[in-house]
Design a protein around this nucleic acid. Structure first.
Length: 267
DNA sequence: TAGGCCATCTGGTCCT
DNA sequence: AGGACCAGATGGCCTA
């Protein structure tokens, strides 16, 4: 039912109906967009008033005004179970719209909060770039890999070689993200991705077996690589921009002693 | 033009 | 009862 009515009503949006937006919905581009869609919502309920295919207008059951005991009229159809449907009166309609607007605004805010959190995750994960943002899913994957790689360092207390570290970082990432990571580390992605290059030179085999055996691997179809802009790779190890000829050195020099200390404290 | 990504709306469900 | 959370649907934008 959702599909059918949205298909119909979204198409027939009437901008004139959008004048009733609440205070949360004024001004910006997004909001103008919303107004359009709101027009669709309004026309949708206009339809519902005389056509209750899905029983949506049974909302506000508790409403004591305007009880409507109308019968199906169609003898062929089996009688509808459940509470009897009521007409969408103007007042009922108004309240329904109000509730919907409030719920939409809450949902929007919720998603904005989620996106904010994702944005802060992007900033602490390798390869942050304002111009070339990682997609949501790639951000989560990279974050997961990053956490795994760091905890592996913590667990073993040893510094992995750059290849196995980046390999762990890029496990399951799409080709564009892999390129991004490689770009950050000034590496050629072909040199550290066995599943994407189909072959891995013996000298590139990870030094640490545990790094190679990533427990959370999954396959992502290789995707074409978009052109990437410049990116700031400095945050990857949370140090100032550096020459990453030996890309992990800054990180290991600063972080490993700390990690070892914490490791000792734990064990 | 197809496919990926995203924002938004929506109704259902669960929780307080 | 109302809010939070969720998943499905939809349309817009962008890129290969």
């Amino acid at each position: 039912m959702t599909k059918s009515y949205t298909e119909e009503t979204m198409m027939s949006s009437d901008p004139q109906d959008s004048a009733t937006w609440t205070d949360e919905c004024q001004g910006s581009q997004d909001e103008q967009d919303m107004e359009k869609k709101n027009g669709a919502l309004e026309s949708m309920h206009g339809d519902l008033e005389d056509d209750d295919e899905d029983g949506l207008n049974r909302l506000d059951e508790d409403d004591d005004e305007d009880e409507d005991e109308e019968e199906e009229g169609d003898d062929q159809k089996p009688k509808r179970r459940g509470p009897k449907k009521k007409k969408m009166t103007k007042a009922r309609m108004q309240r329904f719209k109000m509730r919907r607007h409030k719920a939409n605004a809450r949902e929007r805010n919720r998603m904005h909060g989620l996106n904010d959190a994702l944005e802060s995750l992007r900033k602490v994960v390798p390869c942050y770039s304002k111009t070339q943002k990682l997609s949501k899913i790639e951000t989560l994957r990279l974050a997961k890999n990053y956490i795994w790689a760091l905890s592996e360092i913590l667990r073993s207390g040893k510094s992995p070689d750059i290849m196995s570290f980046v390999q762990a970082l890029c496990k399951g990432l799409s080709q564009p993200t892999t390129n991004l990571v490689a770009g950050c580390l000034q590496l050629n992605p072909r040199t550290f991705l066995p599943e994407q290059t189909q072959e891995i030179p013996s000298h590139m085999q990870p030094a640490s077996a545990s790094f190679a055996a990533h427990p959370y691997s999954y396959q992502t179809p290789g995707l074409p690589s978009p052109p990437y802009g410049t990116m700031d790779s400095s945050h990857i190890f949370h140090v100032k921009p550096h020459s990453y000829g030996s890309a992990l050195e800054p990180f290991f020099e600063t972080a490993l002693p700390l990690i070892r200390v914490r490791h000792d404290m734990i064990s």
